[in-house]
Design a protein around this nucleic acid. Sequence first.
RNA 1: GGCUCAUUCGUCUAACGGUUAGGACGCAAGAUUCUCAUUCUUGAAAUAAGGGUUCGAUUCCCCUAUGAGCUGCCA
Length: 503
Amino acid sequence: MVRVRFAPSPTGPLHMGGVRTALYNYLFAKQNGGEFILRIEDTDSQRFVPGAEKYIIESLNWCGIKVDEGVGVGGPHAPYRQSERKEIYLKYAKQLVDDGWAYYAFDTPESLNSLRKDMEDKGETFAYNYQIREKLDTSLNPSMDLEILKERLEKENHWVIRFKMPSDRAIHMKDLVRGDVTAMSSTLDDKVLYKRIDSLPTYHLANIVDDHLMEITHVIRGEEWLPSLPLHYMLYEAFGWKDSMPEFAHLPLLLKPEGNGKLSKRDGDKLGFPVFPLRWIPEDGGDGARGYREDGYLPEAFVNMLALLGWNPGTEQEIMTMDEMIKLFSIEKVNKSGARFSPQKALWFNEQYLRSKSNSELAILLKPQMEANGVSDTDERIEKVCSLIKERATLVCDLWSLAKFYFVAPEEYDQKVYAKFYKNENPENLRIFADFIETIDDFTTENLNERCHAFIEEKQWKMGQIMNTTRLSVVGSNSGAAMWDIAEFLGKEETLKRMRAIK
RNA sequence: GGCUCAUUCGUCUAACGGUUAGGACGCAAGAUUCUCAUUCUUGAAAUAAGGGUUCGAUUCCCCUAUGAGCUGCCA
């Protein structure tokens, strides 16, 4: 049974890179008939942000990523919040110490910082590793006898447990995306596994212990974790869990649309597009951020766009439903290099999905916007409008601005269009045209088209001139569906009223 | 700086070692049209550089360059 987990840290809203990681995990799990587990890694009490966990769950929900087991759902391995599992980890950390794979360290953050700075000033690189651990304030220091150690462990509250990284191992790893990767343990340092100060493990310990306990079979996560993989391999070995170790896949990063570096939470508002699935409103009143949902994106489009950033099915198909993606996904086809996110392409995806919606589906999206503007009409008429505007909309929120003139007469007229088409004879011609239209009783698109064409020809008017003038009077600008479709929808009375209202 | 990973049109990407290096977004031109769109047609646009291996390299190897990630008692 394939079991994957998405394990975000509740340090703020989940950004789109995180959503993509969750998506790939989900696609992989579902393709293999497996389970998708949501675990919250809240082992950093300093960076905890209230509301973030709720936001993560709501985001997954909006994207159509269903959690089989985990926070918010429960399951046989509960609890799924690491802060609620804190008792578990010390035992495992101590086991590592007993087996000689880890040791206690009493250095204060301040002393380490100054040590680090001293070495850097001398042009050397500081690494907490096999070369210095016995010289520092650790249980490995020859001057630390067992009695003192015991006493200090009891009395002091700032010690940590560090992993004793071997000095001379070649660690061979396998990554489903990258193939074989090798690292020398001598270049690695002794990571902190457990912190006495808040009785919490660090990511590395909690992650390995929980993945083991929760019987995770595949770890699919961002490339930023690749440098930690050797440590994780060593931890599995140290615990004696190598046989049941999960497979790993490290996903390429999402890069900024322009400039350097990975897409970060800060980029969005600066560059003019959202980086979050949902709008984020911090509970403590800090700065909020835009979201794709509120900006008018459909979740199917958002998810489809994200899926193709770093993966493709190997065919030319780009538009895919979640079910199709589940069928087509393969981790071997995930790309190795980072993908620049393109806001343009995101818009294109949304357009495609908007156009594939039926008129009644679009009406459901349009209605709340109409209500917010104090306008109502029958379902049939709203659907008719949707059929006329759907080819013109990119975002859900475009619907109202495109639909407005079908329900409300223009209050002002686009001055640029006015200037472009204005001729002295226009007011008079428009009046004559209106009078003619008044004589037409069969007010249908076809009939209007036929009769008016004939009339314009007879008058020897220029088609573009009179039609655009009419359009300006009825619509207020030079956009919208075919003129007679609009007239048919508005009806004779309203059409004439608008034609005669313009000055 | 050190370690690790990567590199095909501007961007996302396709191509058993043999293709006129394909598609999509965007861009440009044209067609259609009463406008704006849509749609359709066409076009410009790439294998980072240099060495190998090979009859033949985008594909395998080396090196250089460039980019990215990590280098916390963050995840």
